[in-house]
């Protein structure tokens, strides 16, 4: 938090991405990896961190180049920058974490079309200085990581009776296979959004009551 006190902008932008404008629950961005890889908590964490890596660096570089890139060709330019970082993380994972790469599969390559990254490049990094864009990338990335980790913990808990591979459910528990399949993903996310909306409403009601 020392960082935040010296430069309020940095911390504010970071928290905005992490909580206030959480990409999954508020902006509804990046839904495909959110649903596709969240069958186990470990997959959720690693997908989130890989996306954060790409988001931080693409935001930083797009922000550094924002005055050089002509407006008309900005979309192809952004895509090339983003795709370069995706290729980097893909190759790094193939070299050091081949098992994880095999599980996540095409979704790593598909980070390039994750709308979070594109949306942040277009709406934030293209208009703000590098340091703030870095904070935005970090906040949005970690916000995404937290929400998909939460979703994957719930799905793993009910679908396999474990969290991060450790059995937590009693022996007699029958895993619900459907949680690991496509319908489970949709329905869990739907119910989580109900919960988030509910909490938000309760919080704003309390704020109004106080004011």
């Amino acid at each position: 938090m020392a960082e935040a006190r010296r430069n309020p902008g940095f911390g504010g932008v970071f928290m905005n991405g992490l909580i206030t404008e959480n990409p999954t629950f508020t902006l509804m961005l990046g839904m495909c990896p959110t649903l596709g890889v969240t069958t186990a908590a470990m997959n959720g964490v690693s997908m989130g961190l890989a996306t954060t890596f790409v988001l931080v660096f693409s935001n930083l570089f797009i922000s550094l180049l924002r005055n050089i890139i002509p407006d008309k060709v900005r979309i192809p330019a952004y895509i090339v920058i983003i795709a370069s970082f995706v290729t980097m993380i893909d190759l790094i994972m193939q070299a050091f974490l081949p098992d994880l790469r095999a599980v996540l599969g095409t979704y790593i390559q598909l980070i390039v079309v994750n709308c979070i990254i594109f949306a942040r490049a277009e709406s934030f990094a293209a208009k703000n200085p590098p340091l703030l864009s870095l904070a935005d990338g970090l906040g949005m990335g970690l916000g995404f990581t937290v929400s998909i980790t939460l979703l994957s913990c719930i799905r793993e808990l009910f679908g396999s009776g474990s969290i991060f591979g450790f059995s937590v459910m009693p022996e007699a528990y029958q895993p619900m296979a459907i949680m690991n399949m496509v319908p489970g993903g949709f329905i869990t996310l739907g119910l989580m959004m109900v919960l988030v909306n509910f909490i938000k409403k309760a919080l704003s009601a309390r704020k109004e009551a106080r004011a």
């Binding site: 496509v182 319908p183 949709f186 329905i187 739907g190 109900v194 509910f198």
Partner: peptide
């Protein structure tokens, strides 16, 4: 009220996915 919009659509999509299975 709490189901309107995206939550409802997501749960509906889940039921459709069951059908596609």
């Amino acid at each position: 009220k709490w189901m309107q919009g995206f939550p409802g659509a997501l749960i509906m999509a889940g039921l459709m996915a069951v059908a596609f299975m």
